[in-house]
Simulated assay, not measured.
Amino acid sequence: MVNFNLNQLYTFYLVVSLKSFSKAAQALSVTEPAVSIQIRGLEESLGCQLLTRVKKSFNLTEAGRLVFDYAEKIYGLVSDLNSEIKKITGDSKETLTVGTTKYLASVLFPPLLSAFLKHSPGVSIRIEEGSSMNIVDGLVQGNYEIAITGRIPYPKNLLQKVEFTSVTIYPVASPKGRLSNKVLEISDLNEEPLIVRDRYSAIRFNTITKMSDCKINPKVIIESGSTDLIKELVKQNRGYSFLPWAAISKEIEKKELVILNVNNLHLDFPVDILYLKDLKLSSVAEKFINFLMSKKKPSLEETISNLHDSDH
């Protein structure tokens, strides 16, 4: 069975529909290299080339034409499905289902749910976890009403975005590593062994996009969906990685990991609230989003602190 995600397919669909990588990037609010990464990921998953570049344009291969034909049918059906669901659901939902990443579920949702349920007793909430791209796919497929995830390309014609807060990720290495205890330039990371999250992760997507923007060719040696495994490998000096503060704070305090001192490298990305444009939100979903926005702060760490304070 072919394994790919709908987010990659939508990026391809948009590039072909708009006849432009740059216009697709603008529509998705991402960089052009980020669009190229999505297309390459889809080609790798399908095992065939979909586009051939010709100067500033491109041509579809035979496989590309076939994939685009099916993409048109898929997104037409998704639109029809959203319209039909809207007719039968209205505000009748009593349980709110939220899709989010494993990282956000572990650091944001404990104080968030505690504070929200105190604010709105009697509400039933179900949390479903996955990687960022799989969460977006699940939202499009109607698996949950709201998604909270790191910024990645998403189908703007189907989903409404509300920017919530932001996550900063840090370059980390073993204290024994040759990059540690030095003042580095971004170019010093070129060809250094990099351990990254899996390809469906917002952390992975934003890390690779930033490095591509800086003309850095990352030498990815290991990718994993497990943050704990990544940290252990970095501790063993197998390579360096990029991880958020909440995932590394204990290891930094114990001096098991160090944050690399890289000039002019600041890597953060938004955390978005997403929901289907054509589906009327339930009253509990609207209440949940309003509560989130009332507690938002510029960074995830500040937002979490604010939620803890409001719960006391």
Rank of each mutant, 00 (worst) to 15 (best):
P218R: 07
I37Y: 09
I221V: 15
C214I: 04
E163H: 08
R40F: 13
S283C: 04
Q38A: 15
G239V: 07
A63I: 03
L9K: 09
L184E: 07
N157Y: 02
D268M: 07
T11I: 15
F205D: 00
I125L: 11
I169A: 06
E286I: 14
D278Y: 06
E163M: 08
V2G: 10
G64V: 05
E163G: 10
K102H: 11
I125P: 04
E62N: 08
S283E: 13
V172I: 14
E44I: 11
I74Y: 09
V234K: 04
I169K: 01
L117T: 11
F205H: 07
N264R: 06
L292K: 00
G41E: 08
E129P: 00
D228G: 12
K118F: 00
I85W: 14
D268L: 05
I125K: 08
L194D: 01
K23E: 14
D309G: 10
F288M: 03
V220F: 00
K55V: 12
G47P: 09
V67I: 15
N217W: 05
Q141S: 12
V220H: 06
K73A: 15
E251L: 01
F68W: 11
S299E: 00
K219D: 11
V123I: 13
N206Q: 10
I135E: 07
Y75T: 08
N3H: 15
V136A: 03
F58K: 03
A285W: 06
L113H: 01
S29M: 09
K19S: 12
P244Q: 02
